[in-house]
Amino acid sequence: MNEIFDLTGKVAVVTGASAGLGADAALAYAKAGASVAILARRVEKLSQVKAEIEKTGQKVIAVACDVTSEESVKKAMQTVLDTFGHIDILLNNAGVAVAGAVDSMSEEDWNKSFDTNVKGIFLACKYVVPQMIENKYGKIINVASVNAVVANKGGAFIRHSYNASKAAVLGLTTGMAASYAQHNITVNAVGPALFESEMTSDTLFKSEEFLKGYAYLNPSSRAGRKGELNGTLIYLSSDASSYVQGQFILVDGGFTLV
Rank of each mutant, 00 (worst) to 15 (best):
K226P: 13
L7W: 01
V146I: 11
S69D: 08
K226E: 14
A177F: 07
S106V: 06
Q78F: 01
H183S: 10
H160D: 15
E52R: 13
Y137A: 00
N92D: 13
A215P: 09
M132N: 03
I141C: 01
A101G: 15
K212I: 01
C125F: 07
E71F: 02
G95K: 04
L233V: 05
I38N: 08
A76L: 05
E52I: 14
V251T: 14
N135W: 01
N184A: 01
K212V: 05
E228R: 13
E198N: 15
S197R: 09
G16F: 06
L204P: 05
R42I: 03
V80Y: 00
G120R: 10
L170P: 07
V98Y: 12
S237L: 01
K166V: 01
F205G: 14
G22L: 04
D109E: 14
D103Q: 14
S72D: 08
G175S: 12
V146L: 10
I61A: 10
I158M: 11
N184G: 00
T186M: 03
A37R: 05
S221M: 09
Y180C: 04
K166F: 07
N163L: 13
E134A: 12
G16W: 09
I133P: 02
V150D: 12
S179W: 05
S72E: 09
T8G: 05
D88M: 03
F157R: 10
V49T: 12
A124N: 10
S165Y: 02
L81G: 07
